[in-house]
Write a protein that binds this DNA or RNA. Structure first.
Length: 262
DNA sequence: TGCCAGGCTTCAC
DNA sequence: GTGAAGCATGGC
């Protein structure tokens, strides 16, 4: 087990931020995180500290990048418009929410399922597909080999053919061997070419699956925020290179407020 | 019970 | 290009 000092990091908030659907709470500020075919045990005994049940090498090569701990979130905070009251409040409430860098295939599956869906149902569908809380994530080959009926039994509804065809194209395009895009624009256009992936899901894939932080997913919550506080237009130009992080903070904040917690 | 959910495709216009 | 209907299904 290793113990690390961390800044701008809140395990509980990240678990609640609607970007990961397989984390399992195992105790107070403690989670089992099944990714990369392993299960990491994480605990945050104090705000500036995190414990991880893994080797130093695994932490550096796998988990630190996954948790986006190489990235300076203080710099993002410092660039927020001081006159933007809404964004400042969101930033305060979402202090510690980092944007995870998740495996591409897992991100594609998760967010194809997410469309017009709610988070508890998304989690349940992914759990069923994977066959267990700590099981390895379902492979593209397994999805490609599955019948639509099998996929529907996981509660996918009309999204079943979307996921199935996505698996076929993912395999055909060899994305398991790396996804090379010249930039955010090209990546988003590529994923939107999939049947059943539109602008919002493509942005989620870019942001969480490829770490392209120019992606700014516009779901119903974010649209509502923009309509209420930004006259429908968010100043993306001001936040080039990390707008997606702000989106994550606003999404978290708005849902917490809706639940009466913020 | 009815509205809603980290939306998309399809079809009018 | 914009707008509305239809979509599966369970959470609340």
């Amino acid at each position: 087990m290793i113990c690390e000092r961390v800044s701008f990091f809140d395990l509980d908030k990240i678990a609640q931020s609607g970007q990961c659907f397989r984390w399992v709470q195992t105790g107070e500020h403690a989670y089992a995180v099944p990714v990369f075919g392993r299960v990491l045990r994480l605990r945050q005994p104090a705000p500036g500290t995190v414990e991880a049940a893994c080797s130093r090498e695994e932490w550096e090569t796998l988990w630190k990048p996954y948790l986006d701990l190489d990235c300076d979130y203080g710099a993002y905070q410092a660039k927020v418009d001081k006159n933007d009251a809404y964004l400042k409040a969101a930033m305060t409430a979402a202090y510690g929410v980092r944007v995870l860098r998740q495996p591409l295939w897992e991100t594609m599956v998760s967010f194809i399922i997410s469309q017009n869906n709610n988070i508890p149902r998304i989690k349940k569908s992914i759990l069923t597909l994977c066959g267990g809380q700590e099981a390895a994530f379902i492979t593209p080959e397994a999805v490609a080999a599955a019948s639509l009926e099998t996929l529907r039994q996981a509660g996918l509804g009309y999204r079943a053919p979307y996921l199935h065809s996505a698996a076929l194209q993912y395999i055909k395009d060899g994305l398991d061997h790396g996804a090379d895009f010249s930039g955010y624009g090209e990546a988003k256009a590529y994923f939107q070419s999939y049947h059943g992936i539109g602008p919002k899901v493509a942005d989620c894939i870019c942001l969480y699956g490829l770490g392209l932080k120019d992606a700014f997913p516009m779901d119903t919550w974010v649209k509502r925020i923009l309509s209420r506080y930004y006259n429908g237009i968010f100043p993306l130009g001001r936040y080039e290179g990390f707008a997606g992080v702000l989106q994550q903070w606003m999404f978290y904040y708005e849902r917490e407020r809706d639940a009466g917690r913020a």
